[in-house]
Design a protein around this nucleic acid. Sequence first.
DNA 1: GTCCATGCAAACTGTTTGCACGCGC
DNA 2: GCGCGTGCAAACAGTTTGCATGGAC
Lengths: 147, 147
Amino acid sequence: MDADKYLIDAIRSQGRRLTRQRQLVLEILQDSSEHLDADAVYELAKSRGLKVSLATIYRSLSLLKDLGLVEEHRFGEDHGHFETTQDGPHAHFTCLRCGRVVELEAPKIITAARAHGERAGFRVVEVTLHLSGYCDECQNEMREEQP
Amino acid sequence: MDADKYLIDAIRSQGRRLTRQRQLVLEILQDSSEHLDADAVYELAKSRGLKVSLATIYRSLSLLKDLGLVEEHRFGEDHGHFETTQDGPHAHFTCLRCGRVVELEAPKIITAARAHGERAGFRVVEVTLHLSGYCDECQNEMREEQP
DNA sequence: GTCCATGCAAACTGTTTGCACGCGC
DNA sequence: GCGCGTGCAAACAGTTTGCATGGAC
């Protein structure tokens, strides 16, 4: 897998070690189109037959964040969601009914927001744009439930 | 105080009771230009001579949220910040050094983001725009520290 | 007087950490 | 074999909850 090479390089360059656990955490995030939380990664890792603890999941996620391979987002909830680092800036939408987190392309809006912050005198490091509401599917289902 | 009338009306209309604790929590949030977390509200309430428990702070904040008088935000941290409900949509900036949370007017950007989400087929309930980085003051101090 | 709101402490959730063992190098 | 990485359980922070007492109405 190509991405493994990134991982190997990144880990080696820091004098860290490549372990099955770290590999798998990254693979799981890459394979998933969803934005998983730590517990979901943990369950998926176990279901792939790896003996692993939740503590290691957190430690691996933290390392991968430090390496820049993974990003953490807090969508107004009390726990984090993780995704592999994306190329361009993008926004997220969380469905309040089914909980799914979807990505949204919004480069212009995010760039405008960054410029707006700089204009106000801040050095802007990060811009987070998060929408919440109801996805198409859930809107339909809600219509059926309450005619 | 005018805002107390809002509180009284809102609470009465739900058959709830007006207590010194609830009044004070709202007052503290109104008086503060910062975006306080639960513990900060707790400390301020105690410093105003009210005997109160942290549990009550949380319960009051939750009630005020339900009444629509207060909003909770999670700025990528593991704990919430609270503010009285504002008129228009606005963004927030968190300084990564001093932790201060500042409001930012950005109605056009937020409106554009909402429209963007609706165009993608979502019913958008909320838009959160959050910037983080370094405030003017901290930029200066950092310059002095590392010449 | 009724019943909701409070204080207290204990429970709970997501996350982090100390320690002894295991495994990548 | 050296030393980082791991599993386990305990610690931790923020928040919520059960229960008996207190106060708004």
